[in-house]
Design a binder for these strands. Sequence first.
DNA 1: GTCCGCTTGTCAACAGTGTTGACTTACCCG
DNA 2: CGGGTAAGTCAACACTGTTGACAAGCGGAC
Lengths: 189, 189
Amino acid sequence: MTEAAASSRSGSGALTKEAIGTAARRLFARQGYAATSVRAIAAEAGADPALVIRHFGSKERLFLETVAIEGRFDHVTSGPLESLGARLVESLLTEAPELTFSTWRAMLRATDSDLVRSRLIAAMEEMFIEPLAPRLSGPDPELRARLVAAAISGLLDAVAILADRLIVEASVEQLVDLYGRSIQALVDG
Amino acid sequence: MTEAAASSRSGSGALTKEAIGTAARRLFARQGYAATSVRAIAAEAGADPALVIRHFGSKERLFLETVAIEGRFDHVTSGPLESLGARLVESLLTEAPELTFSTWRAMLRATDSDLVRSRLIAAMEEMFIEPLAPRLSGPDPELRARLVAAAISGLLDAVAILADRLIVEASVEQLVDLYGRSIQALVDG
DNA sequence: GTCCGCTTGTCAACAGTGTTGACTTACCCG
DNA sequence: CGGGTAAGTCAACACTGTTGACAAGCGGAC
């Protein structure tokens, strides 16, 4: 069609779309999906509520397009297996943890939507299960990799949603030692 | 409508309140908090939407009063420590799992509400952390008990929310063996 | 018997939500 | 200049949770 012409024509539309996206990202991360209204996003971006829908199709698609889990754990999952549990926990807790936690919180609470749910599943599989499963030796490597992912989601729950104070305020070394050893039991099989 | 009038004449409004409660419980468990409207609950109970609010105060309080985590794991947490991980996983997977899972799903998704969130935290502490922490020996018993709770919430996530097919379809013995051993590492410290 | 108070229920309305369609504006190409 | 199209605006729709005014039936007091 006229996509090339349209994109080269004028940057005005793409600019406000970008503004809407960043406003949505901020509000979704801070208040969650349900508590953030399209009108609030529009106001924050200085745009009309109808324009938000016209640019992104729906509030749900706006959420999916803006708040995405993008943690990269390749360096962890590709490292030595005997220290994987510890390195996994450390990476989760130290590398841009604020982003990881708020994203987890926002997405998990929005899993009413099947689209959000399948997106979350896909992210977990891509980040942890798929890189990990083929490397595990012993019985049921795939199942064990998925249980590792379950343990990770449990840690994210504790920090991002339940906000367990003792866990949040514990030292990274302690958590790496304790929870890392627990995950390591799944890796070793 | 004549039936409702008749019931109100014979006994009390507590009957219709009960009907509203069971309708709410069913719909919340099946569709979650956000997707269930007060009007749908009222229709299912054969009552007026305004009556729902008058009886329970608000949709949020209705949710809190109807869907509550009531799992009892005393027999597990008071048993022998050396097999606690395995017995915990087995108990979670076999004892009224449908109720446990749907309740976990409904509550976790509704943690936008601070009331729901603190209720969920209280339930986890009462069911797992408080009975377990004083029994653990070694360093940081409280922190380790809370990490056990985190691991549990991860397993619940995998089954109830992410609906991980390999985990759901795995045999209880496999999960007890693998994830139980992982939790046991936290218990042993 | 009549009135009062109380619970139980009904109705219409409010402000807020996501979303849609009609409409205007502004721009680039021919 | 004229036409087509993307960008933006506006009012409206159906829906949400919640509220206040009001009716109906009941038990007890005088």
